Computed example of a mutant assay.
Amino acid sequence: MTKRYYVVREDILPEAIIKTIQVKEMLSRGEALTVHEAAERAGLSRSAFYKYKDGVYALNELERERIATISMDLDHRSGVLSKVLSMVASLDGNVLTMNQSIPLQGFANVVISVDISQLTGELSSLVELLRSQAGVRKAAVIGQG
């Protein structure tokens, strides 16, 4: 199922949605150290915050977040995956999720989701660097959002 997004004027949003955004902003600015503290200050229950937090974004926050899904076939040797993850981190990519198959016939498929909003350089450059890494048989972007 494809996720659909809407741009909605703040004055018609339910109060819980507005307060969820306020809590997220307080946390990101460091005005509150915990969800409990921020939710209390905003007048929102923690359960309501957790219900909405992953689906509510300020428009500028949504524009910054970019995620790429990269599939790779890696040799089944010690250190190959570690070097790949270090390479992503060295370019300011942030690995969000990782799924690895059981190694068969000397290699394993690894799929990573990477936050590329702060990536140094282009995604295509990262993929080329991954392909040139010893132990990486194949690397390709299979999704980007």
Score class of each variant (00 low, 15 high):
M1N: 09
M1A: 08
T2N: 13
Y5E: 08
E10W: 11
D11H: 14
P14T: 03
A16F: 08
K19H: 02
T34R: 06
E40D: 11
E40I: 01
R41A: 01
S47E: 12
A48F: 10
Y50K: 04
Y50M: 03
Y50R: 06
A58N: 08
A58M: 13
E61S: 08
E63K: 14
R64W: 11
R64G: 10
E65C: 11
E65T: 14
R66D: 02
D73F: 14
D75T: 07
S78L: 14
V80C: 02
K83T: 02
V84S: 03
L85C: 10
M87K: 15
V88F: 01
S90F: 10
L91A: 09
G93W: 01
G93Q: 00
N94F: 09
L96N: 07
L96V: 06
L96Y: 07
L96P: 09
N99Q: 13
Q100A: 02
I102M: 13
Q105T: 11
A108C: 12
N109Y: 08
V111S: 01
V111T: 07
I112G: 04
D115R: 02
D115M: 00
S117L: 05
T120Y: 12
G121T: 00
V127C: 03
L129N: 09
R131D: 10
R131E: 14
S132F: 04
Q133K: 13
G135C: 04
V136H: 04
A139H: 02
